[in-house]
């Protein structure tokens, strides 16, 4: 895979943005109908969100239609691997913290995150992870005294 050149895809920005707004409007609108509406004088919990969803839906439609005829533009986007690694990194930290403990969670999260940098050698990745484990432990556990277990429940005997 070519990691030198940035990845570009053709996108009609207005249409996609309008569709996203419309999708959120429908989502929020549908959920709000489940709450009591009340009246204008005594608004229930559903009144205001439904109102906002309506306006958002109209804006979304308008943005999409206004941009319908514009040609699609070439848009530079982040590579899917990098996207996944960066988004999954905080989740991995949340999932591994309790069972494996702080140190292991930091190392794993850092390793996952650095996979997003295509031309980094594995040695550099491992060194970064170890350095961050030491640095984070020093700052957050020793200096700030945040009560997180250094070793997780699975690693203790």
């Amino acid at each position: 895979m070519d990691t030198q050149n940035p990845l570009t895809i053709p996108v009609n920005k207005d249409v996609v943005a309008g569709a996203i707004f419309l999708a959120f409007a429908i989502g929020f609108g549908l959920v709000s109908t489940a709450y009591p509406m009340g009246s204008a004088a005594q608004m229930g919990p559903g009144y205001y969100p439904l109102l906002l969803s309506g306006v958002l839906g109209l804006l979304g439609l308008f943005i999409a239609f206004a941009g319908w005829r514009k040609p699609a533009a070439q848009m530079v986007v982040v590579r899917p691997v990098a996207l996944l690694c960066v988004l999954a990194a905080p989740l991995l930290f949340a999932l591994t913290l309790r069972p494996l403990g702080f140190v292991a969670a930091v190392i794993l999260t850092s390793l996952l995150a650095t996979v997003a940098a295509p031309r980094m050698s594995w040695i550099a990745r491992i060194l970064t992870a170890l350095g961050l484990a030491l640095g984070c432990t020093a700052i957050f556990i020793w200096a700030l005294g945040i009560p997180l277990p250094l070793l997780g429940s699975m690693l203790r005997f």
């Binding site: 995150a113 940098a117 970064t128």
Partner: peptide
Amino acid sequence: YNFMFPAIILFSAIGIFS
């Protein structure tokens, strides 16, 4: 930046979790 961004991710993850 290779060394920067994992640190930023971790610092914010630890900060928010705590």
